[in-house]
Structure formats: C-alpha cells, structure tokens
C-alpha cells in the first residue's frame, strides 16, 4: 500500500464542510417538523377517519415504505418539473423527505395510538372531556410520549438519509463533499472526514432529541420514569 494520506489538502475547506453540516441540519430539521405533522395527521386519519381516508393513507404508507428514497426523490423532483412548477433542488429535497418520513412517522405514531387503553377513553368520557380535549390530552400526547424513542431513531436515520438528496444536487453535507473531492482529488480523505462529521451529527441530533423530550414530557423529567 503506497498511498499517502494527505488531510492537509482539506484544511482550507473546513468552512465549506461546516456550511455543509449546517445545511444538512437545516434540511433535516425542516423535514422532521413537517414530516412529523404529516405523519401524525395520517396516523389519526388511519385510526379514526372515514373508511375511504383510511384506505388512502394505507396505500400512501405502503407505497412509501416499499420503494427506495432515491426513487422517491427523483419522482418528486421530476414530478414538480412535469407539473410545470419551477422549484429549487432544495425544495424538492425537503418535499421528498417529508413525504418519506411522513409515512414512517404514521406507522410509529399509529402503534402509539393503538397502545392507549380503552379504559383511558372511557375515563375521559366520564370526566366530561370534549372530543378535542380527549384527543389532545388522553390520546395523542401520551401516544407520542410512548413512541418518542422510536421517533428519535427514525429522525436520526432521516438526517443520515438526507445525504441521498445530493443526487439531485440539493445543497447539503454530501453534496459539499462531492464538490470538495472534485476540487482536491483527495476523495478518500474527503469521505473519511464527511463520515466522521455525520457520526458527530448523529450524536448531536440524538442528544438534542433526548433533551427536547425532557422538556416536553414533564412526567419523564419529574418522576424519572417512562409512561
């Protein structure tokens, strides 16, 4: 093995790497927020909606979960174009990620909703809670609290999967890495640095979700126990 590792060639590029990290975080944060909303609404629709809506959501979830993200990204990207809409690669990337993670969120939240015991609903009714109150306090919040660890893993995976959007030249860490390696010809070193940055990112995102969980679920913070 006569290869000389040369990481010094990458030194001038550290601001570019940092910018890539920032873009990846921004992209995945947007996709997470919107994906969570879409997924939760779909889960509620699937649990309590009219039959036709249930079927539509089921088809959506099954289609997304059984096709690769790469193909979904291409479809959204070219789909916008064939509708005559001019959107940037970044918008298409966020849209594709939202569609993708929405389906997974739906499945996870649905499991949470199913875990709410029937006696809880009866108790809510006895206490005279309105339908909205029951939904918010008795069904949705405890359900999400229960599946929060699974959601965290899913959103860390989403952050890693956002690298695939580099294939439609959306601006994020992997796209930045592709550009740097074609500037410096130090491909192996570039991707080692990129991989290390993603590992750090996945730790940071996981830690952020844990902290956020402590903030929004007081039960865990005050009693130290899961639901």
């Amino acid at each position: 093995m006569s290869y000389q590792f040369d990481f010094s060639a990458l030194l001038p590029y550290w601001p570019v790497f940092l910018q890539g990290v920032w873009l990846t975080l921004k992209l995945s944060a947007l996709a997470t927020v919107f994906g969570f909303v879409v997924g939760t609404l779909c889960a509620i629709a699937r649990a309590d909606g009219p039959p036709w809506l249930k079927t539509v959501v089921a088809i959506y979830v099954e289609t997304i979960r059984n096709t690769p993200l790469l193909v979904q990204i291409f479809l959204v990207y070219f789909g916008f174009a064939s509708l005559g809409l001019k959107v940037t690669a970044n918008t298409a990337a966020v849209a594709a990620l939202v569609v993708n993670v929405g389906a997974y969120t739906c499945e996870i939240v649905r499991a949470g909703l199913e875990s709410i015991h029937k006696s809880q609903l009866e108790a809510a009714e006895c206490l005279g809670l309105t339908r909205t109150q029951t939904y918010w306090h008795v069904i949705v919040r405890p359900a999400i609290e229960r599946v929060y660890p699974a959601l965290t893993s899913q959103y860390v995976l989403l952050m890693l999967a956002s690298s695939i959007t580099s294939q439609i030249s959306a601006e994020e860490l992997t796209a930045v890495a592709n550009r740097i390696q074609s500037d410096t010809f130090r491909s192996f070193e570039t991707y080692i640095v990129t991989g290390a940055l993603y590992i750090v990112l996945s730790f940071v995102v996981r830690a952020a979700f844990t902290l956020f969980g402590l903030v929004i679920f007081p039960r865990r913070r005050k009693l130290g126990t899961a639901i």
Binding site: L160, T174, F188, Y191, T194, Y198
Partner: peptide
C-alpha cells in the same frame, strides 16, 4: 452513524487507494 451513501463512497475510493 454514517449514511450508507458515504460508506459506499468510502469503499469505492478506499479499494482504489489500496
């Protein structure tokens, strides 16, 4: 902790390196 895309690039360029 690494995206599969980056793992694939690492193997692609890494095998060339050795």
């Amino acid at each position: 902790g690494t995206p599969l895309l980056v793992t694939l690039f690492l193997f692609y360029f890494g095998l060339a390196v050795i």
